[in-house]
């Protein structure tokens, strides 16, 4: 049973990590807690849902939905946040704008799609579960864990090993200086929005496939866990998102399996509050704990 529970925790943790990656990247480079991020997850899932219902294969629908979400993320960022960036408005203003935007978008999705739960057409992916060494694991679960590995490696490579990553890191550290040094910050902002939106969209599709539960608010639920994950990992840190996600997923599963399921959902938030008290910069945070 322990092996199965660890696997369960790994799968849940992978979904958290997958979600937190783009969220934390957005904060790390753009310096904004973008609350609309959760909505991108719902959006990706819905686009892929409609695409597969129209007969598209999931292997085409997945990248198409992810990219479309990425493009929408660029547009929304341009509408909501670029004006504030230009006006050099404080970070809490951006937080509030994305808060208002999220409320608006969820309400809209709610009116358009209703809160009824939906699922991908039966059979878009192989739903059989395989018995491996006494553990039950399904295709989508393997897919999610694989996606985490691929995405984390790709992001770390881009950030550490490319010129693009250098520009991004420069922008994260000193936006004004970076611009003086010739970094085209406007197009970098768009690129980061595209990457993050794509990540969120892909994550939404994978979660929708795994749990067969697509509804407008699916992103909001993840968002609450996402906060805990990125604070634990350290705001803006990619490794932090991975480790934080896996850790919280594992803790939740073990709490439910061996302590009491009533406290499963509290785990993330207890971790969040404890992190703030003990080590506000999180596991990997460096400058995050800027003292006022």
């Amino acid at each position: 049973m322990l092996a199965q529970q660890l696997l369960n925790g790994l799968v849940v943790g992978s979904t958290y990590a997958l979600f937190a990656l783009g969220f934390t990247l957005m904060f790390g480079v753009l310096g904004v807690i973008n609350l609309v991020y959760g909505f991108y997850l719902s959006l990706g899932a819905f686009i892929a849902l409609f695409a597969t219902q129209a007969g598209l294969s999931i292997w085409l629908a997945l990248p198409a939905a992810a990219l479309t979400t990425g493009v929408i993320a660029v547009v929304l960022d341009g509408l909501l946040l670029t004006p504030l960036r230009k006006a050099k408005a404080p970070e809490l203003s951006s937080l509030m704008v994305t808060l208002g935007g999220t409320l608006f978008l969820y309400s809209l999705a709610n009116l358009l799609f209703s809160t009824d739960i939906r699922r991908f057409p039966v059979g878009v992916v192989d739903a059989t579960a395989y018995d491996i060494a006494g553990m039950r694991v399904s295709m989508t679960q393997l897919l999610i864990m694989g996606a985490v590995v691929v995405m984390v490696s790709a992001l770390l490579f881009v950030m550490r090993g490319t010129r693009l990553g250098l520009g991004l890191r420069a922008m994260a550290e000193r936006p004004d200086t970076a611009e003086l040094m010739g970094v085209d910050s406007a197009s970098l902002v768009r690129l980061v929005s595209l990457i993050c939106g794509t990540l969120a969209g892909a994550c939404g599709v994978l979660i929708g496939l795994n749990y067969n539960a697509i509804q407008p608010y699916m992103g909001e639920v993840m968002m609450l866990k996402g906060f805990a994950v990125i604070i634990l990992g350290g705001l803006g840190d990619i490794r932090g998102a991975l480790i934080g996600g896996l850790l919280i997923g594992m803790l939740e599963t073990l709490t439910a399996g061996y302590i009491a399921s009533t406290w499963k959902d509290a785990v993330g938030f207890v971790v969040l509050v404890l992190t703030l008290w003990i080590r506000p910069s999180g596991l990997f945070g460096r400058l995050a704990a800027k003292r006022a």
Binding site: M1, Q5, V12, I207, Y217, G257, K264, D265
Partner: peptide, 14 residues
């Protein structure tokens, strides 16, 4: 479980 939960694997494994 919570009414918004999507993952029930821990409880059902037990």
């Amino acid at each position: 479980f919570g009414s918004k939960d999507t993952d029930f694997s821990a409880q059902l494994t037990k």
